[in-house]
């Protein structure tokens, strides 16, 4: 790990100013991605501004939404009773997303910012990585690619965004509150990440010194049900091969309204609006579920190692739609 100066400010403004003033400075929160990247030599800040003691921890429950402090841990959010009542798929994604030890450390803000698990990105001795160094190429496209993305990618980069909880958070149209050198702003998650095929070296819209302070998560209306299905090799403690976050409201045997997002497939957490539109107001029909999944995956870019994900994602979504439409609210 490269030597760095360690700073531990007490206030958000101070932290933002400290990072903004130094191009080689960076925030440090739970550290579960960051320390790993620093040990790998992929990320080499000269100054670390530890924000883990800032007053950004805790959940405020409002009638229509949760205001989640950015430093709230995954474990804390999963334990919030309202999450179990009104955002079950967020709870399920959190619990499936990491081990207890990691959930006790990892923050919700940090989770949204997690870097790809691509082993080519994470090995600085691999020179071809457009995400790390623009225009250097992509070793993963011709390499071993099983845990890589098929949506929002092209031959320049197939990095996967591996977050689980970001998937349902995206599905319910969460927004993040950002404090930066120029003040505060609000960014919907749908506009927060940048797809790899729109520029592999840019991952999100945050600028240097921008700090996520809060995530606002709309609660699902009463009468909705939701669930998160994660398909992986191991029974626990593994990133998703594919996953599906589904929330819906039934009207008899008709899907009155729904939200869908997919994980394990995109360079960003993937909102499946085509599928939502195809299924909104329709009766439960497994064939249609599959067609909706195929529509989402129609734009997939695959390499030999990831080709299986197209079909698996369709199946994962279909299964979760079946489970959700059969479930009692």
């Amino acid at each position: 790990m490269r030597a760095f100066v360690y700073d531990c400010p007490d206030a958000v403004d101070e932290a933002v100013a400290s990072v903004a003033a130094d191009p080689q400075a960076a925030f440090l929160a739970g550290g579960t991605t960051q320390l790993d990247l620093m040990k790998d030599g992929v990320w080499t800040p000269d100054r670390l501004v530890d924000i883990s003691r800032l007053p950004l921890r805790g959940i405020l429950v409002e009638s229509q939404q949760l205001k989640v402090g950015a430093l709230t841990t995954m474990e804390q959010l999963a334990a919030e009773p309202v999450v179990a009542q009104r955002l079950m798929f967020v709870r399920e994604a959190l619990l499936a997303g990491a081990t207890v030890q990691l959930r006790n450390m990892a923050t919700i803000g940090g989770n949204l910012l997690q870097r790809t698990r691509c082993r080519y990105f994470r090995d600085p001795t691999v020179s071809a990585c457009n995400r790390r160094s623009p225009d250097s190429g992509c070793a993963a496209v011709d390499g071993v690619a099983r845990m890589h993305a098929v949506l929002g990618v092209d031959e320049r980069c197939i990095a996967l965004h591996a977050s689980d909880v970001a998937v349902p958070l995206l599905a319910v149209d969460s927004t993040v509150l950002v404090s930066g050198p120029t003040g505060q702003r609000r960014v919907p998650l749908s506009e927060f990440w940048v797809r790899a095929d729109e520029g592999p070296s840019i991952e999100n819209v945050l600028g240097h010194g921008d700090l996520i302070t809060e995530i606002d998560v709309p609660l699902l209306p009463n009468g909705w049900r939701s669930g998160y299905l994660k398909v992986r090799d191991r029974a626990s403690y593994e990133f998703a091969l594919t996953s599906a976050a589904v929330a819906l409201q039934m009207d008899g045997d008709m899907i009155a309204d729904l939200r869908i997002a997919l994980g394990g497939v995109g360079s960003v957490p993937w909102r499946a609006r085509e599928a939502e539109e195809m299924l909104r107001g329709t009766h439960v029909d497994p064939v249609r579920f599959e067609q909706a999944g195929r529509a989402v995956m129609a734009s997939a870019f695959t390499v030999p190692g990831t080709a299986f994900k197209v079909d698996l994602a369709v199946r994962t979504l279909s299964r979760q739609l079946l489970t959700m439409t059969e479930a009692t609210p």
Binding site: L28, G31, T32, D36, L48, T99, Q101, N104, M105
Partner: peptide
């Protein structure tokens, strides 16, 4: 040393964490 095996698990303020992914300063 990569937060993936759990051998370094300790309690910090009563919660189990991975001591390899936490700076001592934290």
């Amino acid at each position: 040393d990569q937060g993936a095996c759990g051998a370094c698990t300790v309690h910090v303020d009563g919660a189990r964490v991975l001591s390899c992914l936490m700076l001592a300063a934290q």
